[in-house]
Amino acid sequence: MSEHSEHDKGGVYSTKGKAFERDSNYITTRIVVDPEPGTNDFPVEPGRYRLIAAYACPWANRSIIVRDLLGLGDVISMGNPGPTHDADSWTFDLDPGGVDPVLGIPRLKDAYLKRFPDYSRGITVPAIVDETTGEVVTNDFAQITEDLFFQWKQYHRADAPDLWPTDRRDEMEEVMRRVYTEVNNGVYRCGFAGSQEAYDAAYDRLFTALDWLEERLGGSRFLMGDAITEADIRLFTTLVRFDPVYHGHFKCNRNKLTEMVNLWGYARDLYQLPGFGDNVRFDQIKDHYYKVHLDLNPLGIVPKGPDLSGWTTPSGRG
């Protein structure tokens, strides 16, 4: 892949001597209860949409977890591209014949081009596709999970968690902003730094944020208190990839996740909850990063380690 190729959520790889920058220009169409006249938004309609989300991708993994936690599996179908892709598109190589069984396409790019024939940006996951037309609706990963909560509420299961608590929302938004810029994106800033100076700065920013989270989680079970929220989901998908990928592959190696007492206990606590660990595919995660990032790992060799059996050990946080 070239140094400007797209990965996961359309991150633009840094050029030599420069810091990593993420392309954050997404398809802004939304799926809402009452689309405003004159907008391109789509209506909430059970059975109409298909979430395309690769288990390998942390940004897509969020949407898989949220869909599961809210009980939306019966109203929004899901397709899962394989863990590796070329510079052109995510592909459905895990499905029989390499074709998505509902959309009938071999490449996610086909759904993008069906709506936007001249689409030239990265083909990213998660994406939601309209099954009635085969056209992509949106790939805005942050907006997707927020809308799954607020716009699809009438279809949530009775015991669905309150992922966006009203009384904590302002603080939660601040926490999520810092988690995104410093941790979710911070590991990529380390991995794709274009110079020693850029890497050193990224490394310091990342571990400053992890130390802040370690301290915060010393006083509460989850980021916002005693119940899981969207903030926890957003942090979890980075933490679960930390030791298998980011510690070595992205040079985030001051210490492992397993060496941070509160963060490690917190991550295991989440992993062992329904909807979290059962939506983690460590084999696909490792295949994706080590086989796709040939600029960082030219031979495509996938490490056998680390030992991941600790994820099922008691967290001590319940």
Rank of each mutant, 00 (worst) to 15 (best):
G11C: 14
K16D: 14
K18A: 15
I27M: 13
T28P: 06
I31N: 13
V33N: 07
G38D: 03
N40F: 03
L51Q: 13
A60E: 11
R62W: 01
S63W: 02
V66L: 14
G71Q: 05
G79L: 05
A87Y: 03
D88R: 09
F92Y: 07
D93S: 13
L94H: 08
D100I: 11
K109Y: 07
K109C: 06
D110A: 12
K114A: 14
G122L: 14
T124H: 06
T124C: 15
E135N: 07
D140K: 01
Q143G: 08
F149S: 10
W152R: 05
P161I: 15
W164F: 11
M172L: 06
M172I: 05
E173H: 12
E173W: 13
R178K: 15
V179Q: 03
N185A: 03
G186M: 07
G186L: 10
V187I: 15
C190G: 11
F192Q: 06
A193D: 01
L213E: 07
F222L: 08
F222Y: 15
A231E: 13
D232T: 09
L235D: 02
L239C: 14
L257W: 02
R268Q: 10
L270V: 02
D278R: 12
V302M: 11
K304C: 00
P306Y: 12
P306S: 01
S315Y: 06
S315H: 08
